[in-house]
Amino acid sequence: MSKRRPYVRSMDGWWKKNPYYVEYMVHEGTALFVIAYTLVLTVGVVRLGQGEAAWNGWLEAMQSPLSIIFHLVLLAAIAYHAFTWFKLFPLTTPPLVLQGKKVEPCAIVRAGWTAGVVAALALLVIVWGIAA
């Protein structure tokens, strides 16, 4: 009879065992904040459909100090999502070859971050343009 008895180790708390995993769980966790923000927006859209008074109520709620603090937290979390999203590009996207040379991973990440900043500023300008 075989004396083999392979021992399977538990995976409980695996992500606490290495700082690399902790950071991974933090950037995955930004999704919770994305959900929270999406719910805020969805409530806004529903309130908009309920008429002017309802919409103004939503705008007022957005002005409460608690809401401002909450949105500062959302901003930090979603900005961290953006930061890590582009940082992972060398892992998640096919290698980019320009003029027969593989583009360096750090150049890809920098291009991603730049695109993020440009897109954000463009959005701000467009919103400003529509509102003005």
């Binding site: 806004g44 901003l75 954000a120």
Partner: peptide, 18 residues
């Protein structure tokens, strides 16, 4: 979310309310 998320949060949750 990476391209527009932070600015959307800033506009709707911080800039406009304040």
């Amino acid at each position: 979310a990476a391209l527009f998320g932070p600015m959307l949060v800033f506009i709707t949750g911080i800039a406009v309310p304040l």
